[in-house]
Nucleic acid binder design. Sequence first.
RNA 1: CGGGGCGUAGCGCAGCCAGGUAGCGCACCUGCCUUGGGAGCAGGGGGUCGGCCGUUCAAAUCGGCUCGCCCCGACCA
Length: 574
Amino acid sequence: MDPCPIVRLSRLLAPTLREDPADAEVMSHKLLVRAGMIRQVARGIYDFLPLGLRAVRRVEAIVREEMDRAGAQEILMPAVIPAELWKESGRWDHYGRELLRMQDRYDRDFCFGPTHEEVVTDLVRREIRSYRELPKTLYQIQVKFRDEVRPRFGLMRGREFIMKDAYSFHADRADAEREYRVMHETYTRIFERCGLRFRAVEAGTGAIGGSLSHEFQVLAQSGEDAIVACDRCGYAANVEKAEVGPVPAPQGRARPVERVATPGKRTVEEVAAFLGVPPERFVKTLIYQGGEGQAVAVLVRGDHEVSETKVAALLGGGPIELADDATVERVTGAPVGFAGPVGLRVRIVADASVRGLRDAVTGANQEDQHLVGVDQERDFPDVEFADLRQARAGDACARCGGGVYAGHRGIEVGQVFYLGTKYSAAMGAGFLGADGVERPLEMGCYGIGITRTVAAAIEQHHDDAGICWPAPLAPFGAHVVPVNANDATLAEAADRVAAELARAGIDVLLDDRDERPGVKFKDADLIGLPVRVTVGPRGLKAGKVEVKPRTATAAEEVPLAEAAARVAALVGPR
RNA sequence: CGGGGCGUAGCGCAGCCAGGUAGCGCACCUGCCUUGGGAGCAGGGGGUCGGCCGUUCAAAUCGGCUCGCCCCGACCA
């Protein structure tokens, strides 16, 4: 067995910073920069320094092992892709400005691949003829570029990032769904091995249709996605997509409608405070515009939020957006903030929780006026009901009926997707079946954001002093610190401990710098390797070193000869 | 893409309103001293003040343009 490397910190490019960088917002960004792991080159584009790159490589290694174990085959496709392939799929015109386009010296169009359905489908259509050659699952680990409107949060949302993308090809839908389940299990193994707390949540499939997509969300307070998970059946989904269970029947008593003045009060919060009526007795009316520009009124209870995903699906799947001020005025006859369903002459869709509401407050479609005592069945009966609101913690689970949703925040690090024949049909990727009939290939695709996973690991595993790497992702297994580099006895002992650790299969970062102990300890905490081994004069006199897991509060004294075994037990196989 | 903010030494910042010798802390170099949680003393190096144009006797400071970066809203691994 090759001995693991021992890297001397004095020679490593690991410029640690004492202060947070001014341009960083989230912890993973601050800590990656402070620990000398990344540096920004342009917005959303980073250098990976040795420590950062080692963490990336560790995620990649886990992903590779598990993909290979699942029978997928690693390939490498080009990052620069000729426009023709993207024109074939139609995405050259539809992908938008996120696609980084360029020309070569002959003015031919190319793009930097943000994803590789076109390239892989082109490869497979040229090389696969028969059902006998199926199924095939191909993957690559590669740099991607998406010219995000708003890159931010360091590695969480870069423009250039490393992604594992996989594509599978099948003779029929059943086999594609079988592979989907295999990949779902593979992803579960991958993120478990990474030492991350995560949930696989149901995800929308947008324009492609079908129901087969899951996002893998690493749970962290700083996550951009809000998700809910049932405490009983385990159903979990993005709040935008999560089905909402039965709503309690409305309580209010019938009374006549009354118009009240609410000068300058536009939001539910403002009006609720002004009238002394709780938000759940409000009907919130939002005017949306679909792709063709027709306005639709969407109603939810005052304490609920609209799920644009659900509204878009109800209206046919196209993109929707909140109407601009002028449209709102035209539709409601009042400025933004005073819309209500009573007397509206556009299509009205409402969340199920609005059905049967009595004694509710709504906008009056007149400036500075609201209606109270509104009765849905009496005053605006002409409404379509559907599940249109975002789920939230405390809602009843729609799947099992008995459970209750708990709220989480998540960072999406992976997604698995059943594609069907979207790309194979568009690009003429077919095969001959046993019956001699040519059919389009059934496909699935499966992505993992490698660099985002590194950031997510830090978001989930850090403390005030720095990163606390899950051992499987740590750049090194152990951090060996001789407290005084000028003490030859200590330095020799540290070298010896490092060598034994390496022999025991642990990669070692040895802080051989001529720095004071405090500086070394601060840097060790910041870099966050799973175990620190301190070699100091006190312990060494008794033939001992200190072994301290990063997340432990106290160190443990261990005889020199046993240190390697002790650390190996703590860190696990590397 | 719309809205807001910031560009002054490697990092974090002051100076700008009220134009007149470019500063502070950390980091860096040299020496002394120190060595179990970001020591101390002394000396030192380093900045076309993002860029361009203008106003002025004089611009980091005032005006215009431009580039870069960050934050807030709709998409995505």
